[in-house]
Design a protein around this nucleic acid. Sequence first.
DNA 1: TCATTTCTGTAGCGACCGCTAGACAAATGA
DNA 2: TCATTTGTCTAGCGGTCGCTACAGAAATGA
Lengths: 222, 222
Amino acid sequence: MKAPKRSDATSATTAGAGKARARPRGRPRSFDRETALEKALLAFWEHGYEATSVSDLTRVMDIGAPSLYSAFGDKRSLFEEVVRVYGTRYGSFAERALAEEPTARAAVERTLREAATAYTEPGHPHGCLVVHAAANCSNPEVEQSLRDRRNANIAALESRIRADVAAGVLPPATDAAALARHTGAMIQGMSQQARDGASREELEAVAEIALSIWPRTGTHTG
Amino acid sequence: MKAPKRSDATSATTAGAGKARARPRGRPRSFDRETALEKALLAFWEHGYEATSVSDLTRVMDIGAPSLYSAFGDKRSLFEEVVRVYGTRYGSFAERALAEEPTARAAVERTLREAATAYTEPGHPHGCLVVHAAANCSNPEVEQSLRDRRNANIAALESRIRADVAAGVLPPATDAAALARHTGAMIQGMSQQARDGASREELEAVAEIALSIWPRTGTHTG
DNA sequence: TCATTTCTGTAGCGACCGCTAGACAAATGA
DNA sequence: TCATTTGTCTAGCGGTCGCTACAGAAATGA
C-alpha cells in the first residue's frame, strides 16, 4: 500500500505571503494550484463534467496529466473540488439571500434578481454550473451529487417558508413545498434561458413576472 | 461515388398491412424499423445524445452496428430522426395547445398542466428530451439544433401573445417577450424538476402557482 | 557533494468511441 | 438454377478516453 503523499489543498509553495509553513521537502510545484483550479472550473462550467476531457483540462490548466493527478486526484475529485469552489465563489447568492433577508419572500426576490445578473455575467459561462454540469452524465454518482445539491437548496427554502408561515408572515394555507419548488424551477429555468442566450435584462423581466405570484406588499392574510 | 441505397423511412418489409408497396429486391430487414427507433428514442431521452453510445443503441435496439448504420445513417442522423419522432409523439402538447386554445393564456394554462403530466408519465424517462438530451454536448451543432427548437417555441408563444394584445384580449402594456420567456423558463424548470424526482402532483402545484401571474379571469384591462 | 523527496515530461496502457470492410445469408427476377 | 440485390455478422479500423509507469529535474537536509 502506497502512502497517499500530501498533494492536498493548503500547500503554499513559493507564494509565501502570510503565515506560510516551511517549504516541503521535494521539488516545488511549478504552477499555481488555485489558478489551475479556476481554469478547470471554467472548463467544467462551460462544457459539463463528461464533455470536459482530461486532455481539455491539462490544456486549459497548462499542466501535464501527471501534475493534474498528483495535485487533484482523479477527474472526479477535481470536479468535486470545482463544485465546492463554485459554491463559495459564484453560487452562494441564494444561500446568502436566505441568510440575510428578513423574510422568505424578500430572499426569493433578491435571489431571482441576482440570478438574472449572475447567470449572464461576462467573463464566465452563463447559467448555473450546479444545474447543468452533470446533466447527461454517464457516471450516475456525479449526476446525483449535483441533483442532491439542487434539491437541498429547495428544501432549505421550503423550511424557511414554513418558518414564515409559523411566524404569521405568510398565511397558514401557504403550500410551502410548492412555493419553494416553484422558485427552484424558476431559477433552473432562468439558468437554462441564460444558456440559451437570454440577456440580463430579459432574465430580469422574467424574474419580475415570477415575483408577481407573491403578494405585492410584505405580509398578506388570505 | 456510391449510390445511397434506399434505407429510408417508408419501407414496409413483411408487415404488409394496408397499401404495402411491392417488396424491395434484396434480403428483407430482420427487425422492425419503428420499434428499433422507439428504443433509440427512449435511450437518447434517458441518457442524452453524448452519453448514449452506439454500443448502447445496438444493445437496446437489438440489432448489429451495420444494421443501425444501414437503416438510420450515422448516430447524428438517428438522433435527428428521434427528435422528429419525439416531437410528433411526445412533445407536441404545447404546439397543440397553442393551435387549439382560443387565447394565449388558455394555451399556457393547458400547456403547463399537461407538462406536469407528460414530464412524469410512467413508461418513459421524465422531463423533456428537447430540453435535456443535447446538454453538455461535444458536438455544438447538435446542442444548437435543440436550442433552436426551444427558442422557436418561445418565439411562437410570444407572437401568439402579441396577437392577443393586438386583439385587445391582453392589455397594450403587456410585455409579450417577457411573458413568453417566463413560460419557457417555467416549462424548462418543470422539466428539470421532473428529472430531479418531482411527482406529477408536485409539478401541478408548481404550474398552478406559475399560472397565477395571469389575471384570474379571461380578459383584463390594466 | 550527495542521498532523499517530490514534481514534471514522455510515452503509452487497456478500454471504449463512432464507424466500416468484407464475407456470408436471404430475398428478388430471369 | 443462378446472377443480382440487399441485410446481417464478425472483426477490427483509427481515434480518444481516463489514467499511470518511468526517467529525469529540482528542491531539501545532511
